[in-house]
């Protein structure tokens, strides 16, 4: 036993646990406290130096939390660049982390759809937060954030302007191709015909939704996470229309994976019997 058990317990309670979700497009960092509450976060481009992005993100999250680095407990890394987070104590897939992050907030049986920069995941959880099943998209950018980035480039639009254009459009073109490159060719044809840009962007959002619903029957309550929904809420609106039922978007949808990683860090390196990790 330590000399000052009460002090040790207080220090433990004050500790922050870090989750780093190093994705293809963005690096997300979340800090949670001993009670599992979000205390600080950061979202920044992953760039080309993943380790530097992770470190900078962690520093930014600590600043936001008003916490000193000494308060940091364990760190769990997730996302495609998880192996580049050299300071992480453990690494988990984004499939597990998104499940944990969402279940922590909603605490019920869910179907989580993460639309990321490079790929999409569907994760089904039971009422206890256990993962029942997961699916990933095919080896293809269609339906992911990368698809919208390509469309923005083709239309010579800032990525951040897409949502307002889609939301304001009354019509949507149909982009029928499975392939991002061919979809861009279809867009050329629409531009030649003078179709308003908003209708093209709304059509691109609808195409993302179409690729997602092809992945899984999406039973029960559907939750959307990831950067695409965080920056483009209209994608959620179109998914609701397509499914004919409400779709839940949790607070901080882009941080769901990082929060899940931080919650796993809070529980230590040993696996929890429950995917959801009780709050």
């Amino acid at each position: 036993m330590p000399d000052d058990p009460a002090g040790a317990i207080a220090a433990l309670a004050a500790a922050l646990y870090c989750g780093v979700d190093l994705g293809a497009s963005a690096t997300k960092v979340a800090l949670v406290d001993g009670a599992g509450s979000l205390r600080g976060w950061s979202v920044r481009p992953s760039g080309v130096d993943y380790r530097a992005a992770a470190l900078a993100g962690q520093e930014e999250a600590l600043r936001q939390a008003g916490a000193a680095p000494g308060l940091l407990g364990r760190t769990v890394a997730t996302g495609y660049g998880r192996d580049n987070v050299s300071f992480a104590d453990d690494r988990r897939t984004e499939i597990q982390c998104h499940g944990v992050g969402v279940y922590h907030v909603l605490h019920r049986a869910l179907t989580v759809i993460d639309i990321g920069g490079q790929d999409n995941k569907v994760i089904r959880l039971d009422a206890a937060g256990r993962r029942l099943h997961f699916r990933m998209n095919r080896k293809c950018a269609a339906g992911t954030g990368a698809f919208l980035e390509e469309i923005a480039l083709r239309l010579d639009l800032p990525l951040g302007s897409l949502d307002a254009l889609a939301a304001g459009a009354t019509e949507a073109v149909q982009l029928s191709s499975f392939c991002t490159v061919f979809a861009k060719t279809e867009i050329l044809a629409h531009l030649r015909r003078g179709v308003p840009v908003g209708a093209i962007v709304r059509g691109a959002f609808a195409s993302v939704v179409a690729r997602v619903v092809e992945m899984d029957p999406l039973p029960g309550e559907v939750v959307l996470t990831g950067g695409v929904i965080a920056h483009n809420p209209t994608v959620g609106v179109l998914l609701q229309e397509r499914l004919g039922r409400a779709v839940v978007v949790p607070p901080h949808p882009q941080l769901a994976g990082a929060i899940g990683a931080a919650l796993i860090a809070r529980h230590g390196l040993a696996s929890s019997a429950q995917e959801g990790l009780d709050a």
Binding site: T93, I95, Q96, R130, S271, S272
Partner: peptide, 17 residues
């Protein structure tokens, strides 16, 4: 990358069970 993530996610699911 996709294969690694899929396999590791399966391992996590089974280890957690």
């Amino acid at each position: 990358e996709q294969t690694r993530t899929q396999l590791e996610a399966l391992f996590e699911q089974l280890h957690d069970r």
